Each structure stands twice: as C-alpha cells, then as structure tokens.
Simulated scan of single mutants.
Amino acid sequence: MQPFVYNALPARVIFGSGTLSQVGHEIQRLGCSKALVLTGSTHSKKGEALRTDLGELAVGLYPNAAMHTPTNITDAAVELAQTLGADCVVALGGGSAVGLAKAIAFRTDLHQIVIPTSYSGSEATAIIGQTENGIKTTQKTLKVVPEVIIYDVDLTLSLPAQMTITSGINAMAHAVEALYSTECNPVTDMLAEQGIARLASALPILAQDPQNSEARSDALFGAWACGSCAGMVSMALQHKLSHTLGGTFKLPHAETHTVVLPHSIAYNTPFAEAAMARVARSLGAATAAQGMFDLAKSLGAPYSLKELGMKEEDLERAVEVALKSPYPNPAPLEREKLLGLLRDAYEGNRPA
C-alpha cells in the first residue's frame, strides 16, 4: 500500500425518499430560524411550496439562481438575505441553486442546507465556481461546504430523461478526474469506481423509464459518490476546459462536461493508464474514452460542441483562456494537442 493523505469534508448527509420533510428539523438543528429559500426559475414553484411548508422558519424566496453562478446574481441574493435578516439558506434545485448557496456562504458565512434535484454533485465539494465579465474562476475553501445535504430520491423522478443523462455524465467527470488526481487515495478511488458503475448501470434504464425509482436511487447515490470524490481531491483538465467553455462561451454546464469528457480521457490516458483501466472496468467497456463516448451517444446525449452552439473560430481562444490558469494534470498541457482535443470535441469524433 502506497502512502496517502485523505481529507474528509464535514457535511451531514441525509439520503432517502420523502426526506424533503426533514428540512425544518435540520434548520432548527443548526440553531437557525430565518431561512432564505433559493431556487432557479425551473424550481420556483417547488421553492414557494417549500417556503410555505417551513412557515415561520422561512423569511423569503430568491428564485433567480443562474448557471455558472454570475456574481451579479449573487450580489442581489446577498442583499436580499441581509435585508430579510436570514441566518441560513436552503437551496432547492440543480447546480445553479447549489452554486448560489455556496457563493452566499462564501461572502456571509451563512449556514447552508442544500437539496439537489439533479446529479451535478457540486453540493458534495468545497469548490466554488463564479463567473464575472465572461470569465469563470474556481477556488477551493471549506467556507462553501454545505452543513447539510438532503438527497430526496422523489425529487429526481421528474427530471427529464435528457437532463438525467447529461447530469449523470457530469457527475462521472468528477470521479474520472479523482482517479488520476495528484491527491488520489484508496478511499476516493473506491468511491469513484462505485459512483461511475452505479451511474453507468442506472442511466440506460432511466433513458427508457425516467420514473424507475430504484434506478433513480442508484443514480442519486452514484452522483453523491462522484461528487464526494471531487470534494476531497483536486480536479484537472476536464474541469478546466468545461469551466472555460461554460463561463466564457456560455455553453450549458452538464452538456459541456458530457461532450468534453471522452476527449479529455483520451488526452490523459497515456499518462494515467491505471486510472483509465478503472474507469473502463466501471463502465464495462474495453477502453475508458470510447466507453464514455459510446455511452453518451447511445443514450441520445449531445456529443459535439457544435451541437451546443460553440463556434469553430472560438476554439483557439478557448485554449488560450484555459492555459492562462491551468489545473494540475497527468498529461502535459500542449497548445496544439489541446486544440486537437477541442476540434475532436467540436466535430463529435469518436476518440481513437
């Protein structure tokens, strides 16, 4: 056994069906009594219902969470929280709502209770990503770790099949990078393999039967496992490229991860063969890159940046932005090779 360092995050996790009913108890358990409920526009009605259910424990609703956590949205939410005298935030929704809760906590130290409705996994990490003036930046700090994560399988039953698939592959990206991270360890390796395997088996079922509660439970657990990996180790090229494409070129987050992941895997495979063998095994595929590409394509997910609205003439700029502040990565980051990666992703070529 090789030496390793393992850092666990201090979060309370509640997993099951019908667990949304425990939000009020968790607010009081934190010693709070004035929660600001956060959602995006998609979940505003659910947010209003939650606010009503919480009664006097909720002081308001902010329904404007947005993808990639724009700082101007955070400005408005923080102002509302301070005006209402909120002592905690309750985020209900996907990565946008969770990201806003983190951004508020980063500025104010308010307690967070987050209730994910997708598989992004960001709720289980100490990473905050924010976008300002078209540039998305990330940092890692325990200040943004939610005090409580409530996973309610029932809330994912209405997640559309297409969003289910891209959100699930987004979660897999966390686990893939954890396996070749400079901080990888036996605990995160185990979680990563289990998370990828659970999602790889659940997503084909959910593509055909989105209401399958057993597959939903497996997918949600897989997303937590994958997100937990990202919370305990550093990320690399996959996340750098996806953050660049999303923050600078306004591409959708989960879909971008879905398109880029097979190609970042192919780029890193010669320098992380043991990690990629674990990914392939978890997918039940011969190779990690082709297995991930084939899974996404077979499920009807987007597999080219062209489909997402990326312009070919912007590929070189994307490489330049990504190289300005690169993340540690197994393979050396070479401009022409990165441009080749993005060109393959743009065209939707199956990795060699």
Results as ranks from 00 to 15, higher is better:
Met1Trp: 11
Met1Phe: 10
Gln2Arg: 15
Gln2Ser: 15
Pro3Ser: 14
Val5Tyr: 14
Tyr6Arg: 09
Ala8Asp: 15
Pro10Asp: 13
Arg12Ile: 14
Val13Tyr: 15
Phe15Leu: 10
Gly16Ile: 01
Gly16Asn: 03
Thr19Trp: 03
Gly24Thr: 05
Gly24His: 05
Arg29Thr: 15
Arg29Met: 15
Gly31Trp: 04
Gly31His: 09
Ala35Glu: 03
Val37Arg: 04
Val37His: 00
Gly40Thr: 07
Thr42Met: 08
His43Pro: 00
Ser44Val: 04
Lys46Val: 07
Gly47Leu: 02
Leu50Trp: 05
Leu50Phe: 01
Thr52Arg: 01
Glu56Val: 10
Ala58Pro: 01
Val59Gly: 11
Pro63Glu: 10
Asn64Gln: 09
Ala66Trp: 06
Met67Asp: 11
Met67Ala: 10
His68Trp: 13
Thr71Pro: 01
Thr71Ala: 05
Thr71Cys: 09
Thr71Lys: 08
Asn72Arg: 11
Asp75Arg: 12
Ala77His: 09
Ala77Ile: 06
Val78Ala: 14
Val78Gly: 14
Thr83Cys: 12
Leu84Asp: 02
Gly85Leu: 07
Leu92Gln: 02
Leu100Gln: 04
Ile104Arg: 06
Ile104Gln: 03
Ala105Tyr: 05
Ala105Met: 01
Phe106Glu: 09
Arg107Ala: 12
Ile113Asp: 10
Ile113Asn: 08
Val114Trp: 01
Pro116Val: 08
Pro116Thr: 07
Ser120Pro: 01
Glu123Pro: 05
Ile128Thr: 03
Gln130Leu: 12
Glu132Phe: 11
Glu132Arg: 10
Lys136His: 07
Thr137Arg: 11
Thr137Ile: 06
Thr138Trp: 04
Lys143Phe: 12
Val144His: 08
Pro146Trp: 13
Ile149Pro: 04
Ile150Met: 13
Leu155Val: 10
Met163Glu: 05
Ile165Glu: 02
Thr166Tyr: 00
Met172Tyr: 08
Ala173Asp: 05
Ala175Val: 00
Cys184Ile: 13
Met190His: 15
Leu191Asp: 14
Ala192Thr: 02
Ala192Ile: 03
Glu193Asp: 06
Gln194Ala: 15
Gln194Val: 12
Gln194Met: 14
Ile196Arg: 11
Leu199His: 04
Ala202Asp: 04
Leu203Lys: 06
Gln208Tyr: 09
Asn212Thr: 03
Asn212Ile: 07
Arg216Met: 03
Trp224Tyr: 14
Gly227Met: 00
Ser234Asp: 05
Ser234Phe: 02
Ala236Thr: 11
Ser242Asn: 11
Thr244Ala: 14
Thr248Phe: 02
Phe249Pro: 02
Lys250Trp: 01
Leu251Tyr: 00
Glu255Gly: 02
His263Tyr: 06
Ser264Trp: 04
Ala266His: 02
Asn268Ser: 03
Thr269Lys: 11
Pro270Asp: 08
Ala274Leu: 06
Met276Glu: 01
Arg278Phe: 05
Arg278Thr: 00
Val279Ser: 07
Arg281Ser: 12
Arg281Gly: 12
Ser282Met: 11
Ala288Phe: 01
Ala288Ile: 08
Gly291Phe: 05
Phe293Trp: 04
Phe293Pro: 01
Leu295Pro: 00
Gly300Asn: 03
Ala301Thr: 05
Tyr303Trp: 04
Met310Lys: 07
Glu313Phe: 12
Glu313Lys: 13
Val319Lys: 03
Val321Asp: 08
Val321Ile: 15
Tyr327Gly: 10
Pro330Thr: 09
Ala331Thr: 09
Leu338Ala: 04
Arg343Ile: 09
Ala345Trp: 05
Tyr346Pro: 10
Gly348Leu: 07
Arg350Asp: 06
Arg350Phe: 04
